[in-house]
């Protein structure tokens, strides 16, 4: 077997050492730094993108927060305005209601007075008509001519009882 020929060992070991050292130089001084540079550059690129995305997200969050704050303020303001308007309207309505109520009350009172007056007038007329009718009836039935004052008193008493 050629593998066990010691005459070749020195040459093999010598060139193994030489080529292995050369390859070590190629790997350590050339291949690894260049590949690491590529990988670092890529990692940096990706990191920059991620950082930019994070910054944009922060900006968006700030914008949303500002919007939310403005929205809340506007909402509060709107509620205040509405509350004030409601109070104002209620006041106006109350005032108008009071005026109208007073007016209507007065009209009712006037009407009641008028009705009372008409009623008493009507009752007065009833009295005189009743008295006349009574005198006529007495005169026709009994042929008596009664004193007008007496008849009036009797009719008045009867009406009072009827009421």
């Amino acid at each position: 077997m050629p593998q066990f020929d010691p005459a070749t060992f020195a040459s093999q070991i010598f060139w193994l050492v030489v080529t292995f050292l050369a390859l070590y130089a190629v790997i350590a001084k050339f291949a690894i730094p260049r590949i690491e540079e590529i990988l670092e550059q890529r990692a940096r690129f990706v990191q920059e993108d991620l950082d930019r995305a994070a910054a944009l997200k922060a900006d968006t969050d700030t914008a949303i927060a500002t919007y939310e704050k403005a929205m809340a303020a506007a909402r509060n303001q709107a509620r205040d305005v509405m509350l004030a308007a409601t109070i104002e309207l209620k006041k106006v309505a109350d005032e108008k209601t009071a005026v109208v109520t007073a007016e209507v009350g007065k009209q009712i009172t006037d009407a009641e007075t008028r009705i009372e007056k008409a009623k008493s007038e009507a009752v007065g007329s009833i009295k005189s008509i009743a008295a006349d009718t009574a005198r006529e009836a007495v005169a026709r039935i009994s042929g008596l001519s009664l004193d007008a004052a007496k008849i009036d008193a009797a009719v008045g008493a009867a009406l009072k009882d009827a009421r």
Binding site: T8, A10, S11, Q12, F14, W15, T19
Partner: peptide, 10 residues
């Protein structure tokens, strides 16, 4: 005296 010839292995 050491044979370090450039061979097919090298």
């Amino acid at each position: 005296g050491l044979d370090i010839s450039y061979t097919n292995s090298a």
